[in-house]
Design a protein around this nucleic acid. Sequence first.
DNA 1: GTCTATACCGAGATAGAC
DNA 2: GTCTATCTCGGTATAGAC
Lengths: 203, 203
Amino acid sequence: MTQTVAGNKGTRRPSGAVATELLDAALVEFSTHGFEAASTRSIAQRAGWHQPQINYHFGSKQELWQVAVDHLFAELTGQLGDLSGIDDAPVEVFRRSLGHFVAFSARRPELHRIMSIEATVDGPRLGWIVDRHARPLAEQVGRAWTLVRAAGAGAQLSPTEVWQLVIGLGARPFASSPEVVRVTGTAPEVAAQLDLLHRLLGL
Amino acid sequence: MTQTVAGNKGTRRPSGAVATELLDAALVEFSTHGFEAASTRSIAQRAGWHQPQINYHFGSKQELWQVAVDHLFAELTGQLGDLSGIDDAPVEVFRRSLGHFVAFSARRPELHRIMSIEATVDGPRLGWIVDRHARPLAEQVGRAWTLVRAAGAGAQLSPTEVWQLVIGLGARPFASSPEVVRVTGTAPEVAAQLDLLHRLLGL
DNA sequence: GTCTATACCGAGATAGAC
DNA sequence: GTCTATCTCGGTATAGAC
């Protein structure tokens, strides 16, 4: 089963498990080598595809990257769950979402790896990923934190500072786990990072 | 004036301002594109050199990378100053060094950019940079923090947690400044990051 | 739809004139 | 020492057989 992607020059995108395998392969390659150095040959090979199939189904390396990033952020959004009860119990919902975020970052380090690679150079890829994914997420965290503070809980930190803490301590260590292992001797753990965040955030 | 580099297959490394210009160009390219995607042609062009001169003087792209990284860490070490008085006044020396580190990270975001690119894939480059630079620095920070704690100052944080805070809040925001600008609307500032670190570290 | 073959480009490294 | 020219390799993308 195939479906046409709007604005994709008529290329067809396969759905289902087969496509998911290729997108996962793409995320591994893009997150470890960066967009430029990642090769569509390696991505196809990793998923048992042939290289020209990528161009047929996704149109270009660029569009494959976008679809893969969308796929990854959709997975995160699904994990974070609904924030419907945030007005009634802001602290509990914030803590639960934070736990989901840290667990996701440990299980899927590709997301922060891609973000940190793209974050260093301003350009169309960074603009796309920030407008579409990063800024909405940061604003969501900021609003949630504002509710936490309004409820009289949490440390005296601005939404931006909280965002920095969440990324710097909840995502970065897992994205950089090979370095962390070599420097400290042990891999970062979800429970420890979460406990550290709770202490610093005053939750 | 030239000098031979030990274990460099007899290649000659130029010294002085001319070489510094090339190393700076190399750091810009390596830190924004990553080792694999950076091209020696671009590096040479940026410094007004021709591409084959890089191979003549440094032997290979790999060795150029190592010399450039050494150059960058030497600059950081020079900025951090001496820690001789750390036993007498640990808090003051720690705060001063932290200030120098954050200021350096803002002025030279290339260091953390290169570290975070290399941190995601275990391999010879990561091993080299950790053994030679990152672990010694982390251990130095750990020892300094232990002295701070022994003096009864600072928050209840382990040396590893302090290291994570220093990197995550003192270096990462500047390395990712294009993203920070797009997400928050303003660039990270040395004084603000330093103030945040002081509050979290209890200094 | 999926393959092979290939066009086209740019990479790192090297040879050789000067 | 520094240049031009070039070798070899691997990248994306495309053409065309099946």
